[in-house]
């Protein structure tokens, strides 16, 4: 009885339903052995140390399920980003193959890192004149 006191009602009931062999009852209730006892959310069968349900094949492992969910989420996110990029391209993406050469050159200039270079240079010019004057 002392053993059963530590168990939840569900586990004890399940013991008698699922596995009534004398041996099994005395091995099973130890807490460290219960760690991987998972009841299948789909069909209700108890599984020991299994990632997938032995009866219906449903995924049981908490970790695996979470990993799969993360992977799915990542895939969805990438797909959404792709769609977003296709439906609303940036100013550069839209105009880099523009039919007018002037527009193409303008876009290339704006997009290059040397635009930032010029901006920094202009800022320094302003700074120098502001300090000197």
């Amino acid at each position: 009885m002392q053993i059963f006191k530590r168990l939840s009602y569900d586990t004890v009931a399940n013991l008698f339903i699922q596995d009534t062999s004398f041996n099994r009852i005395f091995v099973f209730p130890l807490k460290r052995d219960m760690a991987n006892q998972i009841k299948c959310p789909n069909c209700g069968v108890y599984n020991t140390n299994e990632d997938y349900c032995t009866n219906c094949g449903t995924l049981l492992s908490y970790q695996k399920r979470r990993e799969l969910a993360f992977a799915q989420e990542e895939k969805d996110r990438k797909k959404r980003a792709q769609i977003q990029k296709e439906t609303s391209p940036s100013f550069y993406e839209k105009n880099k193959n523009h039919r007018f050469l002037v527009v193409r050159i303008f876009v290339k200039i704006i997009h290059s890192i040397w635009m930032a270079f010029m901006a920094i240079g202009m800022f320094i010019a302003w700074l120098v004149s502001a300090i000197a004057a």
């Binding site: 890192i113 040397w114 270079f117 010029m118 240079g121 202009m122 010019a125 004149s129």
Partner: peptide, 20 residues
């Protein structure tokens, strides 16, 4: 290992010349 291209050098110099 990036270096300033000639066009940018001349562009910024022209800006400085005009500005100052």
């Amino acid at each position: 290992n990036s270096y300033v291209p000639l066009v940018v050098v001349l562009g910024l110099t022209t800006y400085f010349a005009i500005y100052f």
